[in-house]
């Protein structure tokens, strides 16, 4: 398994480089103009000058090479400088956003806490609710609990966040006045009071997101448990006199985890990617909001960098899932 992991990690480098090239070409090919949001009152000649100042006129390979150098060479230096107080990176141009004319990575780092707080919490909450629901629904298939669980999960998944978000805002902010409708990203949690405030402003976005995540994972958990509950080894385990608890929660659960691990691993990168619509609705200015804003403004360096970080996470977490398969089911071997 170790050799497999190392081989895959080594292979990840060319994979990621290829992905970055595809993303780059895709973004270049996509119609769009960083000047789209500049008012029509600015004459076309001026817009042309502004484009030139962004370096748009350069040939493609130059632009791509510049990004590669900035991302893989300059940005790590900046990070090292930041940690150790050295000065490797002076005078080297970093990846600069076209919207803000400032280093992309600085903004990303500014945004990560919001996203982790809200999307991360929602993900953890969602998994913690989904697993027990999925297990119990399968164990008592077609019971009332299962039926209600199915209904709620399906409705929860069918209702898109652009609607459910507004619905909870109207109920809890406008009518009841319990929670703020706009997330305060400047809040510093340094006291009990501010911690409570942070909790209050997180409740609604976490609720909306967790509903979606719970719906999805509990369905996969239930289906997979159902497949396993009727297997012969379950009968054997019961026949051996294992307690029902051990049979279900150890033997069946472990064998049912493969699809669930896949789904969870697919979801983890999206924690970083943020939840675009939910972040928009609640004004949690996290990574998702940054990405959609950058796409709308055609801020290619920003989109390229964010998507690439996202790609790295995808590759890493899919690798982790593959390793976990081997742990869950030792018969799976890759070599």
């Amino acid at each position: 398994m170790l050799t497999f992991t190392i081989r895959r990690l080594v292979l990840a480098v060319p994979t990621l480089l290829f992905i970055s090239l595809v993303i780059f070409l895709l973004l270049q090919l996509a119609p769009g103009d960083p000047m789209a949001q500049v008012p029509l009152t600015v004459p076309p000649e001026v817009k042309e000058k502004m484009r030139e100042a962004l370096g748009l006129g350069q040939p493609l390979y130059v632009q791509y090479w510049k990004w590669i150098v900035q991302f893989f060479w300059v940005e790590p230096q900046v990070l090292i400088d930041h940690w150790f107080g050295t000065s490797f990176s002076t005078d080297n141009l970093r990846v600069i956003s076209w919207q803000t004319r400032s280093p992309v990575m600085d903004i990303v780092i500014q945004r990560i806490p919001q996203t982790l707080w809200v999307v991360g919490t929602a993900y953890v909450v969602g998994i913690l609710i989904a697993l027990p629901i999925g297990i119990y629904s399968a164990y008592r298939q077609y019971s009332w609990f299962d039926q209600i669980g199915t209904f709620v999960a399906m409705v929860g998944f069918s209702v898109p966040p652009f609607f459910s978000g507004v619905l909870v805002i109207v109920i809890f902010s406008v009518e009841l006045g319990w929670f703020p409708s706009i997330y305060d990203t400047t809040l510093v949690v340094d006291s009990w009071e501010s911690f409570l405030q942070q909790l209050r402003q997180m409740v609604m976005p976490v609720m909306v997101l967790a509903l979606q995540i719970t719906a999805q994972i509990s369905r996969f958990m239930r289906a997979s448990m159902l497949d396993n509950l009727n297997q012969d080894y379950v009968r054997t385990a019961r026949a051996k006199g294992l307690t029902e608890r051990t049979v279900v929660l150890v033997h069946v659960l472990r064998n049912s985890m493969i699809p669930v691990v896949t789904v969870i691993a697919l979801g983890v990168p999206s924690i970083f990617g943020g939840a675009i619509i939910t972040e928009q609705v609640f004004k949690v200015n996290g990574i998702g909001q940054l990405l959609i804003g950058a796409i709308q403004a055609n801020d290619l360096p920003m989109v390229q960098t964010l998507t690439f970080i996202f790609a790295v996470l995808i590759v890493v977490f899919n690798l982790i899932a593959d390793v976990l398969y081997g742990v869950l089911d030792p018969r799976i071997r890759y070599d």
Partner: peptide
């Protein structure tokens, strides 16, 4: 397994909106 899963990784990583814009174009 290798090639197909790397292809999957690629598709997972592609930004949806620009991809759709390109398809439209």
């Amino acid at each position: 397994d290798g090639p197909l899963m790397r292809l999957t990784d690629l598709f997972l990583a592609l930004p949806l909106l620009p991809l759709l814009l390109v398809m439209m174009l």
